[in-house]
Design a protein around this nucleic acid. Structure first.
Ligand code: MN
Ligand code: MN
Ligand code: ZN
Ligand code: ZN
Lengths: 155, 155
DNA sequence: TTGATAATGATAATCATTTTCAATTAAGGA
DNA sequence: TCCTTAATTGAAAATGATTATCATTATCAA
């Protein structure tokens, strides 16, 4: 596992405790993997990565913990159309910060972008206000994705 | 099935033929169901609806045809986080026109909206231009969804 | 150190979606 | 209308991701 395992476990400890959860090796390891990749990983990807260091942590545990981490808002789950979910640290806990995705319909490559966020914010502020009012719907999150063909698939 | 089966089959015929596909009872029926609902239906929903009129059309056929209809752009497939895909006539072939969705995280109710499309268009034009240029990515579609809590789940 | 209980792992079960393959059918020309 | 042929279909089995079970283990506040 990477260098900053210790730090991670520390700042997470609080978050976990106040939700009635315990800090375990598996959770530490999952967060570590996610904190040290720029990719969007499947449950199995994470399982395999962890398996090298902790061969006794099972795929089931990875699934269970990912669900929990998604619930408390530390991890985000995505469906890019591949037939299995991909996970990533949520904006607030990631170096990436708030961002969205370009998804290649051909090879499923995913590109993070955080350009034009000023425009987005502007658009969302107005739209979210209007929608939540009109439909009496309390908006919590938004999902924005662009689908198309990536550079290498175009050649 | 509903009244306008005949019309549907007619305007579709052309689209199918020029793609090398044939017009079959199953396809006619699927389009009929989709054209006459405001809901977002799962493959099984569609299968069950068809089954009343054509008890010999199987779920497999529904899946196969939905995939084909998605490929030629007549139907759109959505993942609202429920664990199974939902289908809807694509904007161009639906009375709804271009729209997006509010999805309740609690009960998975889906609300169609087509408000603030002027703002959206404005935002997208600029953003899509910038992104496709910067990442050398040919944008084909966009997905915008708002997640939150619906009126009845809030009570 | 200990007790209550959260968490785990191996396994089996679910469940949506696909694959297989032999039988059927749509469509265009004779 | 009749034929030919390739597209389409249905039943059944297979796949593959995710979840449920349950006995065992680990965490952590007291
Ligand atoms: Mn990302
Ligand atoms: Mn819709
Ligand atoms: Zn690609
Ligand atoms: Zn709801």
């Amino acid at each position: 596992m990477k260098k900053n395992s210790k730090q991670n476990s520390r700042w997470m400890h609080g978050k976990f405790k106040c939700n009635g959860y315990r800090m375990t090796k598996a959770r530490e390891a999952i967060l570590d993997i996610l904190a040290n990749t720029k990719d969007h990983l499947s449950a199995e990807d994470i399982y395999l990565a962890i398996h090298k260091f902790y061969p006794n942590i099972g795929l089931t545990t990875v699934y269970r913990n990912l669900e929990m981490l998604v619930n408390i808002g530390i991890v985000v789950k995505f469906d890019f159309g591949e037939g299995r979910s991909k996970y990533e640290l949520s904006d607030h806990y990631s170096e990436k910060g708030h961002h969205h995705h370009l998804v290649c319909k051909e090879c499923y490559k995913v590109i993070d972008y955080s350009d034009f966020m000023k425009d987005e914010l502007n658009f969302l502020k107005n739209t979210e206000n209007g929608l939540s009012q009109k439909y009496n719907f309390e908006i919590r999150d938004h999902l924005i994705q662009f689908f198309g063909i990536c550079e290498s698939c175009r050649k």
